[in-house]
C-alpha cells in the first residue's frame, strides 16, 4: 500500500477511531497502573523488612523478640568468635554509640568483614531470639571504601 492511500485510509478511519482508540488506551493504561500500584502496596506489606540500627534496636529488645528485621552497626573490635569445633558458626558484637547487640551467624562472612578495627559497618538480616541474640541469615559488610565495587554480600538460607 502506498503512503498516500494509507494516509487517506487513516483520515477516513481516524474520524471514528480517534475517540474510541484514545478511550481504550487510557482505560488500559489506568487499569495497568492501578494494578501495579496495588501490587506494590500489597507486596510491600508482605515482604518489607524493618530496619534498625543497633542504637535504635537495643532499647526495645524485649519488644523485638521473635521479629525479623535488618540490623546495622559497627563490628566491635576483637569481638569475632568462631564456635569451637566448627569453622562457620560465627558470633560477633555489633555496636553503635555504646549500645551493643550480639549476632550469631552460620555461613560465609563477606570478604570485607573484619574485627581488626571498629570501623567495619555491617548490615545483618535475621531474627531476634528470645535470649536477646540476633540470629542472622545474611550478613553484608560495607568497608568505608573509596573504591567503586560490587556488593560484598554473604547469604545463607
Amino acid at each position: 500500500m502506498t503512503d498516500e492511500s494509507t494516509k487517506f485510509d487513516d483520515e477516513v478511519r481516524s474520524a471514528s477511531a480517534q475517540k474510541t482508540s484514545r478511550g481504550w488506551l487510557f482505560l488500559v493504561a489506568i487499569l495497568a497502573a492501578a494494578a501495579l500500584v496495588a501490587a506494590i502496596v500489597v507486596i510491600s506489606f508482605d515482604k518489607r523488612t524493618y530496619y534498625f540500627t543497633v542504637a535504635e534496636a537495643a532499647p526495645q529488645l524485649v519488644d523485638l523478640r521473635g521479629q525479623r528485621f535488618r540490623l546495622k552497626g559497627m563490628v566491635e573490635q576483637d569481638s569475632h568468635l568462631i564456635r569451637e569445633g566448627t569453622l562457620d558458626q560465627h558470633r560477633f558484637t555489633l555496636t553503635e554509640s555504646g549500645a551493643q547487640i550480639v549476632v550469631d551467624y552460620q555461613g560465609p562472612l563477606p570478604d570485607t568483614f573484619t574485627d581488626e578495627s571498629d570501623r567495619t559497618e555491617v548490615v545483618a538480616v535475621g531474627t531476634l531470639r528470645d535470649d536477646g541474640i540476633f540470629e542472622a541469615e545474611e550478613v553484608s559488610a560495607k568497608c568505608p571504601s573509596r573504591y567503586e565495587g560490587g556488593a560484598p554480600t554473604a547469604e545463607s538460607q
Partner: peptide, 24 residues
C-alpha cells in the same frame, strides 16, 4: 528510594530485600 523516603517522611524504618523485588 522508598525505604529512605519512608524514614524521612514517616519515620518508618523499613527496607525491601530481594524477595520484594522479585515478587514484583
Amino acid at each position: 528510594l522508598y525505604p529512605n523516603l519512608a524514614e524521612m517522611v514517616f519515620d518508618l524504618a523499613i527496607t525491601f530485600g530481594a524477595p520484594w523485588f522479585e515478587r514484583l
